[in-house]
Amino acid sequence: MGSNTVRLRASACVLATVLLAVLLVPLAVPLDEQAVDLAAKLHPPSWAHPFGTDEVGRDLLLRCVYGLRLSLLVGVVAALTATVLGTAAGVLAGVLGGWTDRALMRLVDLFSSVPHLLLGIFVVAMFRPGIWPVIASVVVTHWLSTARIVRAELLSLRTRPYVDAAVSGGASRLRVTVRHLLPGVLPQAALAAVLMIPHAIWHESALSFLGLGLPTHEASLGNMVNGARGSLLAGDWWPTLFPGLFIVVPTLAVAALAGAWRERLDPRRRSELTL
């Protein structure tokens, strides 16, 4: 068993656990993550509250699970939307070339030249706080890299002799794109989508930490880290540590999974994929 396989299995296990917790806990444990218990505020971790309680006595384990649920929802929806948008832009630029290519790529440059967070803040500032402006903010800042990757991959695929053979065989431009080029870039686009999920989670956390993301009462990981700043200075570490770990561990697992996947995409090993 190679180290790649170990990495793949370990990260898959972590992700499966996290997903199960996020999906099942709200169903199996009908507790209110917003329930305030001022008599139990800032309790350190104990049997009753394994992650402790926050400054208004809310259970941190429950809030972490709900926070990750929200972050994953934002992350997955935003990553998928940004990937579809980026792939469409990359394919249009790569296939049509010329004027379309130049216009689209200058647009990508324009968006890239503004710092991501600034652009993201600009987008959320235009709407009432909520989940959709945050998703829109992630999409606007994250479709760029996918567009570049897809275009570059397409430019290299476009010069392959099998495209020449298809053209000579009477295939239209649309048919060459859909049948021969798009299937070639989809693995790269899918990989980019998976790698984008952690980015989207960080983006949401950063916006919420700045007070610009989700409404402050929502159990979001960024909101929780933001709310815990005061208690951290007073020496209460648990309201910061656990939401922080909930950001770091799943994103590391996703990154490790994507890394292992990328190694599998290596053309020399492609034949193993079909076995």
Binding site: R160, P161, Y162, S168, R270
Partner: peptide, 17 residues
């Protein structure tokens, strides 16, 4: 276009994998 049948040097590159 289809009046020509083309065969290239490298079969690996000429076939959609």
């Amino acid at each position: 276009r289809t009046a020509f049948g083309v065969v290239f040097q490298q079969p690996r590159q000429s076939a959609d994998p």
